[in-house]
């Protein structure tokens, strides 16, 4: 349990750093780090397959996406960065306090869930659940991926014409 607690605190700090850090590249890296820590939590919570997905798609693919977007859009000039930092400090200054207050109050509450849990599932293998019971979701995934392809074709095509 203590190990869990440490990982959870690390998760919160990674997310906080992602939001607070001043350069966008670091922010993207922070997001990957958050995903990676989340992966560890998911392994610990008996969800290995989903954890692998999280690691490869979120920590891998989406970070690449963000980094390439950031490099596609030009960096700001020195002057703008300074101005930007001032702006950000005034706006983001409250977040750590808010997070700390929130975490302390919530931990102090320490609600005990006494749940009348539903019966355990009959099928325990995730492969069976995913491929046999949730076929409609698989179909949905395929359609979503196709629409993503169309989105990329339509939104990024301008470059080819020029």
């Amino acid at each position: 349990m203590n190990l869990h607690l440490v990982i959870l605190i690390a998760l919160i700090f990674a997310a906080l750093w992602t939001v607070m850090t001043r350069s966008l590249i670091r922010s993207a890296i922070g997001l990957a780090l958050t995903s990676a820590i989340l992966t560890i939590v998911m392994f610990a919570l008996n969800a290995p397959l989903a954890a692998v997905f999280e690691l490869s798609v979120c920590a891998g693919l989406i970070s690449v996406l963000f980094v390439s977007t950031i490099s596609l859009t030009h960096p700001l000039s020195r002057q703008e960065i300074l101005q930007h930092m001032k702006d950000r400090l005034t706006r983001f200054w409250y977040l750590p306090i808010l997070v700390a207050v929130c975490a302390i109050i919530l931990s102090a509450l320490d609600i005990k869930f006494s749940l009348k849990l539903p019966a355990h599932e009959t099928e325990n293998d995730v492969r069976v659940v995913l491929w046999n019971l949730r076929q409609f979701d698989i179909l949905g995934q395929i359609i979503v991926l196709l629409s993503g392809v169309f989105g990329v074709v339509i939104l990024f095509r301008e470059k080819n014409k020029k």
């Binding site: 919570l45 008996n46 969800a47 397959l49 989903a50 997905f53 999280e54 798609v57 979120c58 693919l61 989406i62 869930f113 749940l115 849990l117 539903p118 355990h120 599932e121 099928e123 325990n124 293998d125 995730v126 069976v128 659940v129 995913l130 949730r134 979701d137 698989i138 949905g140 995934q141 979503v144 991926l145 629409s147 993503g148 989105g151």
Partner: peptide
Amino acid sequence: VSGHSALTQSLVITMIVIEAV
């Protein structure tokens, strides 16, 4: 906690794909 980790894992996999798109 509810002992349905096979169900929730398959939900999370679907969710991650949609999120990426």
